[in-house]
Design a protein around this nucleic acid. Structure first.
Lengths: 169, 169
DNA sequence: AAAGGTATGTTATTATATAACACTATCTTT
DNA sequence: AAAGATAGTGTTATATAATAACATACCTTT
């Protein structure tokens, strides 16, 4: 198990990992964070978070909406989903992938909340990463322009390890 | 004048620059690139590019559409704009800012086409930047995951030099 | 139980983007 | 210059993503 706060391991890119472990860890962490922050991880919010964590592929709000509708008998409208997503974003439990208009679970919900992803255009997996070096360089660049960073998003689109292999061989 | 292929100077962040020069350079460069690539910078495409270059603020497709409609008597529909935008993106003459769903002129349309911007949430200016260092570190990170990068986008949202000053003082 | 705040339901609308097909302009070959 | 091919634009309809505004339900504290 990787140390808490670290990015997910490269093996996720190859889909060779115990994803049930990802899910249970994420749900437990979410409970703790919400309780620490004095906010409520309601049934709906938990349900949405669990759906997002079904894989490492970002899910769109409308896909989530349909999945919710399947799970419960009631009809689910966009604001229901968007409000849950907004909450989860605020608590740092998920990320929004701008290039996809989609949402994915955060693998280190306690640390800095930069948005750094490698997104496989073949299988859809989004791998969160972060390195001290890049952070340092970016701060440097911003300083050159006297720019005050409030939010950061790096999105690399391409092919993950597994899909690169499939293409080449 | 900065050497061809270099990012725009920090002074753009402070809005203290000769923007007419930006526009004329951009339009001339666009003509040359299209001619080099054997593609046509039609009237419509040129018109859209010029509108985008009216400032360093990214413009949404529908805003562009309204501006086009004002300039000509004919009615302008979304596909008209989106097709022109698609062309300009393909030729590397503009960038799409994912966090804003908007488009902005490219300041170095001949080089690598990474998408690295600092976006001021106050005045809306998007400053393009790129550094060897960041590029190097990002390639490094991708290599660790055996990830093949096809497109890259860094978007920093915050306050530009001018707007930081306004807030502090 | 009442009051106040938080969360969700509901309806309507706005914003962004594309599909499909028709028509026009431009280029190429003769 | 005419014919055919290709590229570009017009037009209508629709898909996809997100929010506004207001009503209702649910918790918590008194």
């Amino acid at each position: 198990m990787p140390p808490s706060g670290s990015p997910i391991s490269p093996s996720i890119a190859s889909r060779l990992h115990d994803h049930n472990h990802c899910i249970s860890t994420a749900m437990e962490t979410a409970q703790r964070i919400c309780s620490d922050n004095g906010v409520r991880l309601t049934q709906l919010r938990e349900q949405v978070l669990r759906l997002i964590w079904q894989s490492h592929r970002p899910l769109g709000a409308y896909a989530l909406m349909e999945m919710l509708a399947e799970q419960s008998t009631r009809r689910v409208a966009p604001p229901t989903v968007y409000r849950a997503l907004e909450f989860l974003l605020e608590q740092g439990l998920i990320h929004r992938i701008n290039t996809l208009n989609a949402f994915v679970g955060c693998t280190h919900p306690q640390g800095d909340h930069d948005n750094n992803f490698m997104i496989c255009e073949e299988c859809g997996v989004a791998i969160e990463f972060c390195t001290e070096k890049i952070q340092h360089d970016i701060k440097d660049s911003a300083a050159q322009f006297n720019f005050t960073i409030k939010a950061q998003s790096i999105e690399l689109v391409g092919l993950c390890q597994a899909c690169t292999g499939n293409k080449d061989e």
